[in-house]
Design a protein around this nucleic acid. Sequence first.
DNA 1: CAGAATCCGTGGGGATACTG
DNA 2: CAGTATCCCCACGGATTCTG
Lengths: 128, 128
Amino acid sequence: MRRPLPADMFDELCPSSLNPIRFGDKWAALVIRCLEDGPRRFSELRVPLSRVTPKVLTQSLRSLERDGLVKRTVYAEAAPHVEYELTPLGRSMLEPMAVACAWVEQHWDELLDAREAYDDAARLHQAG
Amino acid sequence: MRRPLPADMFDELCPSSLNPIRFGDKWAALVIRCLEDGPRRFSELRVPLSRVTPKVLTQSLRSLERDGLVKRTVYAEAAPHVEYELTPLGRSMLEPMAVACAWVEQHWDELLDAREAYDDAARLHQAG
DNA sequence: CAGAATCCGTGGGGATACTG
DNA sequence: CAGTATCCCCACGGATTCTG
């Protein structure tokens, strides 16, 4: 049995507008991380992604499927369910994602400072 | 004198919706590539980015400036002009961008095939 | 020259309610 | 369980026109 995904896998400000690098749509990168350790069911994904409505989560999953990054499998058994898993193509994207994440982590403070400085200057320019 | 940016630096389908990895807004990655070899003026950038309206290009540049990725300098001389250049932070982003670009190039055919297959299946499912 | 102002269409994202 | 249906909003991108 796979261990369930923790509900607090992503903090509230994830994704953040401060991160300039995006993979797919707004939630795609988080979905991919959820699938890193193997197939997951829709309801499993909803646990860490509780802030995403089912409609939007479905959209994101379909988009990933469309791009060949995720495989969707329907099990029409007594207890019907659906599983999502990374394709080899999807798994290969973990590498550029890791590089991007490393860059973001490494430069997070600079990004934060830059935005604060810019917004402060803009506010001054507005008032003054 | 820096050599001017070629008008055909980016082909028509750039950026493409097929590329799942995005840096900043729609045009940011192209702007960054334009600045790779040194400062450029607004009008210089407009040459390869002729499909971008000045308003949107300005938006993109301001956003990059806000994130500390690009520096904007105003020269209020006889012939007033403005130059944009990459900050060290902006230049550091070239590395994850190169990794992402390599991944996209390497997997472009797979992405194309996946989308075609998905859309064909969807169309069949629609008709049938 | 380097934008700003204005108007506008589209669509992505979200809330809520409902279903095979 | 795994979504769909509907409605809504607004932010993004673009076209056009105007300006310090």
